[in-house]
Design a protein around this nucleic acid. Sequence first.
DNA 1: GTCTATACAGAGATAGAC
DNA 2: GTCTATCTCTGTATAGAC
Lengths: 226, 226
Amino acid sequence: MNRVGTQKKILDAAELLFSESGYYSTSLREITAKAGVNVAAVNYHFGSKEALLDNVLERRLAPLNKLRLQMLDAVCAEAKDRGRRPSVKALMHAFIAPTIGFRDSDAGSKNFVALVGRAISEPSGTVQRSFFKFMEPFITVMIDSLHEALPDLPAELLLLRFHFSVGTLVHILRANNGAGLPEQRCMAGDRAKHKERKKGYEEPKAITTATLVDEAVNFVTAGMEA
Amino acid sequence: MNRVGTQKKILDAAELLFSESGYYSTSLREITAKAGVNVAAVNYHFGSKEALLDNVLERRLAPLNKLRLQMLDAVCAEAKDRGRRPSVKALMHAFIAPTIGFRDSDAGSKNFVALVGRAISEPSGTVQRSFFKFMEPFITVMIDSLHEALPDLPAELLLLRFHFSVGTLVHILRANNGAGLPEQRCMAGDRAKHKERKKGYEEPKAITTATLVDEAVNFVTAGMEA
DNA sequence: GTCTATACAGAGATAGAC
DNA sequence: GTCTATCTCTGTATAGAC
């Protein structure tokens, strides 16, 4: 079999299994069985299990980062054309919308974004390094743009608040399930109790991607401008 | 040897090693070697590696949650005495201050809080369940109090924003290192570049716990009240 | 009841035949 | 390039000594 064909089969199988069961609960033997290749194929083509995860993420994140950077550039260019500062809200939208919106894309599994969220904090070394290698060009532009939008905010404080914003976004990705309900596991009980105690609340409906994006943007924008 | 003595030795060794290398990169053989006990001791006393992590976290988090709930009650009681609503800021402070301040406590390792941050999103089943079991009484009171503080905010939106706030806090914990610099790994390069390009910025100094708490509280308060 | 020694199945990784 | 066989190390279970 040709090289790319085998690699693609492995990547597809790994993406699906990682998304379903997580990185550590998925064995190379499951992946290679599903892909219809030999156990040793992963180590031959990718070098290690961690490097495989790295490649699984890279395949999807590369276009995402491209899109994010495009949107950020568009916001900055438009502001420049009008001779104005970019708004914090528009910048944050360019950061958040493609990321959360990614869950509606046709990428592998509905749980892929959750896998990303977990991967950021979890596997050490290779994965984190390559993740931030991806992010770096975006973050550089993002922070520069935020400085333009908030010229009076000290650099240290701006970085800290942007750090908080990243935390919010990562948490959304991690907690995200297919239905789009954040932290369903954690909140469900409390939500139910509240419905008992306080009347007149609307039925808890599944949050649409658009709503989630809007609310997240509003939240971090308020925090950045506090 | 007595029961509690052995258990304590295992818990101490596990806490240190988990904090240093993470849960998955630490083997039971390393833990038991450091504790000076037999490999089988972990399974005898705790049942499994995951249950051990559960106990490691519980030992430190139980007093933390007690403190958090006390502070929250104090804020609510004081507001009631004055016949006022509790302020969002005071509530968020009661949530965040003990949590971040925990890193200055004498608990095991400086990296313990980072371990907590990682554990929330990582090991499945047992650990997450027991973690939220801990949190539940606090969260119930917290959400009730937030409803008092923000009576006009729809319940769905309040929950969503609180969810975002939790994300911010978890991210701070996860990125936290002993020095107190957030996201040093990710930001260091960009920060340095900024120092080159833009002049007049103050030297990046290690952020004190107090500053970090204040800024985090301001950030999420602004987001909640947006 | 505690603890030790040991066995076991499964993991990721690798060398060498084809 | 691919596959088999094998290596080491992991978490877990158990039998038996004290």
